[in-house]
Design a protein around this nucleic acid. Sequence first.
DNA 1: ATTTTATATCGTAATATTGCAATATTAAAT
DNA 2: ATTTAATATTGCAATATTACGATATAAAAT
Lengths: 108, 108
Amino acid sequence: MGATKTEHFTDSQNQIATIAKALGHPARIAIIEYLMKVDECICGDIVNELPLAQPTVSQHLKELKNAGIIKGNISGNAICYCIDEKAFDVLNSFFFKITQTISKSKCC
Amino acid sequence: MGATKTEHFTDSQNQIATIAKALGHPARIAIIEYLMKVDECICGDIVNELPLAQPTVSQHLKELKNAGIIKGNISGNAICYCIDEKAFDVLNSFFFKITQTISKSKCC
DNA sequence: ATTTTATATCGTAATATTGCAATATTAAAT
DNA sequence: ATTTAATATTGCAATATTACGATATAAAAT
């Protein structure tokens, strides 16, 4: 064993988990925060911002892209990355439900 | 290598990543959704709700607890679990910032 | 006292993730 | 045409996660 039993869960559960998993690494949070700070597409700068080697950063960017959290456009020999709102729509509606549930909860 | 280089990132980045990581598995999303559905502390029922063996569920519950996402109270020979709002406060403020940034973004 | 019930822990196999050096790719600059 | 710059891919070692059988623990029920 060792592999997640994806097939036992709903599409929605898997989708939320996939996005959350992609956010589950500090380097990837740092990338997102950097994209927010500069507030526009970033061409080139990301590797220099992070305390990790270039292949490692490239790998983290790929994971964020696969999860739909960022999108990249080729621009000459650089690539422009920015945040993709679609993933956050999914998460926001999940968190909205949680917040609502908690606020009216009679529990603990 | 293989271990996350936690020490290279800020406490805030690590904290957000830790919570997101704990949400990064469909079984743990399923647990949270179940806790939301019943909308009160659950004593006992969780194992039967999930398509996983009891030790596996126990392990997932432990991870959610370590991340501060759920809390558990001993109640006789059962344990009552419910959602702990504190973790979601952290995430909500992170997502609020993202949503704000995206909405005013001039990018892509 | 013994059995049942609910949950946790241990041990371990299978798989996934993290990180990086080496190398490849591809476009811009010279 | 060659070099430089930016990024991706490959290969691999170290570590972490996932899953579960076996076993432990501890309270409730008998």
